[in-house]
């Protein structure tokens, strides 16, 4: 556990969370959510939880983003807020 690295990663996680919730284009919001999952994965590698980082990178950032893109392709891309 390295303190400056931890603080920088947490800052990126916060920026990605706020950007994913405020973007009006839903496809870019989902892409930013994938970036959020990858920063979470880096944060957990840094906290010595490598198995959780594997699972996050494959399941949450991979399959979750694919599911969201499929849902958006079936529905609308624009959002009002």
């Amino acid at each position: 556990m390295i303190l400056p690295f931890d603080l920088i990663l947490v800052l990126f996680v916060y920026i990605c969370a706020v950007a994913a919730l405020t973007t009006r284009d839903l496809l870019s919001a989902v892409m930013i959510l994938g970036a959020y999952s990858y920063f979470m994965c880096l944060l957990w590698t840094e906290m010595a939880a490598v198995d959780v980082a594997f699972t996050e990178a494959s399941v949450s950032a991979g399959i979750g983003t694919i599911l969201c893109i499929g849902a958006i392709s079936k529905t609308k891309r624009r959002s009002n807020d």
Binding site: A20, M40, G64, C68, S79, D81
Partner: peptide
């Protein structure tokens, strides 16, 4: 506060990630 349903689902994802973050950070030893 968000009215779009996909935005609500993204918020739910962030919420669950924060709880997982809490549990993982309780496993760290200095």
């Amino acid at each position: 506060a968000k009215r779009n349903l996909i935005k609500k689902i993204i918020g739910m994802n962030v919420f669950q990630s924060s709880i997982i973050f809490f549990y993982i950070s309780s496993s760290v030893k200095r």
